[in-house]
Design a protein around this nucleic acid. Sequence first.
DNA 1: TAGATTGTTAATCGATTAACAATC
DNA 2: TAGATTGTTAATCGATTAACAATC
Lengths: 217, 217
Amino acid sequence: MDNEIINIPEPVLRRLVRYHYYLLKQVETGSLMISSTSIADHLNLDSVLVRKDLQYTGLVGRPKTGWVTEELLKAIESTLGWNNFNDVFLVGAGRLGSTLLHYGGFKNYGFNFVAAFDVNPEVVGTEINGIKILHTDKLVNLAERMHIHIGVLTVPAENAQVAANLLVEGGIKAIWNFAPIQIDVTKDVIVVNAQMTQEIAILANKLSGLLKAKLES
Amino acid sequence: MDNEIINIPEPVLRRLVRYHYYLLKQVETGSLMISSTSIADHLNLDSVLVRKDLQYTGLVGRPKTGWVTEELLKAIESTLGWNNFNDVFLVGAGRLGSTLLHYGGFKNYGFNFVAAFDVNPEVVGTEINGIKILHTDKLVNLAERMHIHIGVLTVPAENAQVAANLLVEGGIKAIWNFAPIQIDVTKDVIVVNAQMTQEIAILANKLSGLLKAKLES
DNA sequence: TAGATTGTTAATCGATTAACAATC
DNA sequence: TAGATTGTTAATCGATTAACAATC
């Protein structure tokens, strides 16, 4: 009833993902306890910031010792919703789509691909990594029947809006859009765009700052 | 000498990318002039924020009319450094790597793939989208000779650190890392991680907020 | 106990929004 | 001119950092 997964600020979410990754490595190396100071040191952050962020998990640390590493890892997973599966549809089983299907790692983040869709007769009917590729005709009906909430969009830009409409028609509530185009959806549907171009812009800006600093020194 | 591409805050960079995309569409539809209010309306932002952001381009708008659409587009491109090519090496010509090579769109963002590297004898010597795949042995020497500054890392997690070391040894200054692992580099090298897991976390958090809001209403 | 680390309250910093004069 | 839109200065908001008491 009192679900805690609510409205966590984006910067905090991004850092929780980084803590998760670091803790995973620490658990593997046999670390039993972990402190905010050690996390902060490794990720180049302030330890107070780490403690503030970790409060979103609801877990309380022990002075002098910190947190039980594995407990904290689980708490972060639960806060991020990575401990229960979300069934996911993928639309567009081309190069990028099949790359995502082949990569099994998304399961660790609660993303469970249950079916993929395409119109290309060469791929419809085949399987990628155990996931069936079906014709897009079947999407709306199946999404409704299976109560799918999440769709991943990996179609070419020119087909993205049509594909998005199908997802929405099928009752999908959130779309992860890899098509290099802004898609229009009704207000009650969430769109998260894959932000490769933004990452390129950030990289280029940092690089030019670095090169300039070097010139001046 | 007085290069303007310096130290723009990340949120501003991310929005400049969105303005760029919107302006591109507007130019295509024949729009000659554009105002901060119309940009703000379409992207669900405050118009003052848009004007503040656009000041980073150095361009001044005209009261009552706004900016010349195409001029503003060019100014944003120049601010983001998208008007001149950066030669880029890609390491790891597997599924993801070849998907990126096939996608020609990165050229529009100043990313020019000049060579790719792998160790798999089946791909070394072949070409993808006109880009030669060479053996990783050749990376360091070629990077030095060609003065490459940017590397894209699309190798499996277990090879990522070794590949990153090669890039750094070759004098590369910035790495766009798609491997699901944190790579260690010397302080003077920039690493921008592809943040798919962060995007998943943001999507899941927004979705659970939405579903909860619906439950309560 | 002493020391390390937590969690909290206050201060600072940076980014966004509000108010408004300037201008085409 | 009147109205729309710009750019600037001040106010607000949110996120980060600093200071410090609480605790194991």
